[in-house]
Amino acid sequence: MDNNDNNKDRNRDTKTRDDNTSAVGEVLLRILITAIVIGIAALLTPGFRINGLWSLILASVVIALLDYLVQKIAGVDASPFGRGLTGFIVAAIILYVTKFIVPGFNISVWGAIIGALVIGILDAIIPGRAM
């Protein structure tokens, strides 16, 4: 193996590490933005309540994971306005399902529907991707 091959291997390893670091950063940013948007939506939506910061953080992680799974399995983006009616319905379902996973995250069916609408509006205002 000559120096060019060694340099290529070294560059490939560095690129893989950089890609992994950027992926972790994207996930953390996505969770942070989701937490902000979900917190605001809970304040503005009747029938939607979050009891404490830890419930908000855990709900953000769960929502981000459910969004990721739905996107990978069904190919549907759960952005309330990004994918039309389907995305809106999926966002409302994800919000409602989170109720059963996260203690302190309480939402009614109507709260999930209105919450998905509020999240869609906030998603259009706040840069980044909330759901």
Rank of each mutant, 00 (worst) to 15 (best):
V97S: 13
G120P: 03
D18R: 05
G25E: 01
L58G: 08
V76Q: 09
L53T: 15
I38G: 08
S22E: 10
A124P: 09
G120F: 12
I57Y: 08
L29V: 06
F81W: 06
T45C: 07
A42V: 09
D77S: 05
V118A: 02
P103V: 00
A116Q: 03
Q71L: 07
N6C: 01
A23C: 10
T34E: 10
I121T: 05
I57P: 09
I94L: 04
G111H: 09
G104H: 11
F88N: 00
N7S: 10
G87T: 08
S108M: 04
D123S: 15
G25M: 11
L117K: 04
N51C: 02
L53H: 13
A124E: 14
A59L: 07
A92P: 14
G128H: 07
T45K: 06
I114G: 09
A130N: 09
I57E: 09
W54T: 15
A91T: 09
R129H: 03
A91C: 12
N11Y: 04
D77C: 03
G75E: 10
M131A: 12
I107D: 06
I125W: 05
V24N: 08
T16F: 07
L29R: 01
N106P: 00
L56W: 13
D123P: 12
I50W: 13
V118M: 10
V90L: 10
I63A: 01
V97E: 04
G87M: 03
I126N: 06
Q71K: 13
F48T: 02
G52M: 07
K72C: 03
R17C: 04
F88E: 02
A130C: 12
F105I: 00
F48R: 04
K72Q: 15
I93L: 15
R30K: 14
I101L: 12
T34S: 15
F105W: 08
I57K: 14
I93K: 06
N51K: 06
D123A: 08
G115E: 00
T14P: 08
I101E: 07
D77Y: 02
P46F: 06
G104T: 13
T16P: 06
L32T: 15
I113T: 03
N51H: 10
I126P: 12
I94N: 14
P46D: 14
T98C: 04
G111D: 11
L29C: 00
V62S: 14
I73L: 10
L85T: 13
S22P: 00
A59D: 02
A42P: 00
A59F: 05
S108C: 01
I38Y: 12
T21C: 10
R129C: 11
R17I: 14
V61E: 03
D18G: 08
K8M: 12
A92R: 11
A124T: 14
V61M: 13
K15E: 07
P103L: 00
I89E: 02
G104D: 14
D18K: 03
S55Y: 13
D123T: 13
A74T: 14
R12D: 12
N4I: 09
G84D: 07
A91E: 05
K8P: 00
D5K: 14
D67H: 04
L95I: 13
N11W: 11
D2R: 04
R10L: 03
A78K: 03
N4V: 09
A78F: 01
A78D: 05
V102I: 07
N3Q: 15
T21H: 01
M131F: 15
G39R: 08
D5A: 14
L44R: 05
I36S: 01
G87V: 12
I63L: 10
